[in-house]
Structure formats: C-alpha cells, structure tokens
Design a protein around this nucleic acid. Structure first.
Lengths: 139, 139
DNA sequence: AATATAAATTGTAACCATTACAAAATTGGA
DNA sequence: TCCAATTTTGTAATGGTTACAATTTATATT
C-alpha cells in the first residue's frame, strides 16, 4: 500500500468528498493499481479488507469519484467499464492479443478540431487497438 | 432510400459478403442514416419492411459487417452500441445536453504516438464530450 | 423439378454488468 | 447519549447482448 491513508483522506477532502473507509480504500486501490481496474477487480481486492463490502458500494463510490472528476471512465472494453485515476490527457491502447491496456501520451493541440469549433469540450477519450510490441515479438 | 439495392448488392459482394435481403436492407439503412444508429434504431425501421425480422438478425448482420470492416463500432454511449458505416478516420463528439453525436475530422499524423512506437494500430477511436454550439446558443 | 446440403434467419432463454431501491448500519453534531 | 443525515448493504430488477436450437431460405447436384 504505497498510497497512505492520510494522503487519501487529504486528497478526498480537497476534492470535496467525505473520506469514508470505503472511499479511502477505493482511492488507495486506484492510486496503487493504475492498470485500469474493473469494478470486480476492486471489489475482489477490497473484500479481503472489508468482509461486509457490497459491490454496489464500489459502483456508488466510483460514480461519486466520476462526478467529482477524480477518475475517468475507460470504455475501451466492450464488456465492462474500467476506471483510471490518472486524469491527465492520455490515450489508451488495447492489445487484441494479450488484452493489456497501455497508456500513451497525446498531443491534442494540433489534432485539428475545426469541425467542432465553438463547442465546449469537456472530455477527450482516445482509444486505440491493435497488437503491442511484446506480442509482435513473440509471434 | 437513396442508396440503391443494386449498389448495396455490389458493395456487399466487393467486401466478400453474400447479399441477403437483410444484409442489403441493413447496409442501405446505414448508408442512408449516418447518424450512428443503434441496433434498436435499425430494427424498428426494418421491421416495417420485413415483418418476421428478428433483432438477433440485426446483431448477426452487424457482427458480420464489423468482421469485414465495413462498419465501425461507436462506443461513445455507455448504454448501447452504435454503428458507423463511415470507416474513414474521424472523431465523434457527443453533446451532453442534446445527446447528438457529431462527426469531426481529425489529423492523427501529429497526435504524437511515440509511446506506442512499434505497435500495430488497427483502430483509432476518438470520442469527445461536451456541449455543442447549438445548445450553447440556446442557453 | 426434386432432392440434398449449406447458409441464413428466427425465437426463446440465458447471461451479466449495471442500476434501483429500501433496509440496515454508521457517522457526526447538538 | 440521542437524533438526523449520510453511508453502506442486499436483493431484485433492468436491459443490451449472446447462445443456441429450430425453422426457413438459398444453392448445388442429379
């Protein structure tokens, strides 16, 4: 557990979220596991700590976090939602062979958004799919 | 019906798809309604023509089209999948106010993909969300 | 044409991530 | 401590999607 409880509390308060036990643990999990976990990933881990944990609580917490903009929804998977505590601008690449999701930096400044000039852009979601280097090597 | 049956047949054959009635009609619908329809949108329209139509057939057909790369899946909506017959490179903007989805041209050449150099990129999906110009005007 | 074989379509049921909601538990302030 | 508000839980429902077997339709062969 690299992300300390105190840091988590502070972080939540700073983002206008009352730091309950579950919220703290979910935040810590997200900070320590930046591999775009699913609800089930989080649930499976936290149930070890909180035996009474309900999956609904994970959904509630993530919904709250989304509303406060401290996590982003990653919909690169068609089956289940993934969550990303890293809200800085970056894209996601999913390897169709190993299913791993890679982050990559993007430069949207010269993407060319003339067609939607005058629109308010709140979120940019960039999903790529293909075959990653590792899988290419081993084939 | 702007996209003619003969054109549809030809188009399907060219893409290695046997032109059945349903496939032709689905293709025509997609060519004539480029507003990223859902399965239900397509079903509701085509059931008028084909009274025995099953929703499963729409799923089957779209799955086939996806496999042949003549449509793209648009996952900008969290509830249901949308489909796009326009497979050229472009992004999708969803207005959170009116829910309309806009196409916009992109220039990925200078997006900066250094982090995934050496990867094979098969698909680029670019989803934006915010408020469109029309909604901004009327508020 | 008739038959046989393959392909396409249908209908129903199951799947499963997510949501709704009311009950129970917990928290924090007076 | 007590009370009210908030948080958490558990269960049931929702709904898009998929599995699959049965039916229908198309294609090829004689």
């Amino acid at each position: 557990m690299a992300f300390k409880t105190d840091s988590a509390k502070k972080y939540l308060k700073e983002h206008d979220i009352k730091p309950s036990t579950i919220r703290i643990k979910v935040l810590q999990y997200l900070k320590d596991n930046k591999h775009h976990p699913t609800v089930d990933d989080i649930y499976k881990e936290l149930i070890e700590d909180i035996p009474t944990l309900s999956k609904t609580s994970i959904y509630n917490t993530l919904e709250l976090f989304l509303g406060k903009n401290i996590v982003n929804l990653v919909s690169i998977d068609d089956k289940e939602s993934r969550y990303d505590i890293d809200t800085s601008a970056h894209g996601h690449f999913k390897c169709k062979s190993c299913n791993k999701i890679y982050d990559f930096n993007i430069n949207t400044s010269n993407l060319g958004e003339e067609d939607i000039k005058g629109f308010i852009i709140n979120k940019r979601k960039i999903y790529y799919e293909g075959i990653c280097k590792d899988c290419l090597k081993s084939s």
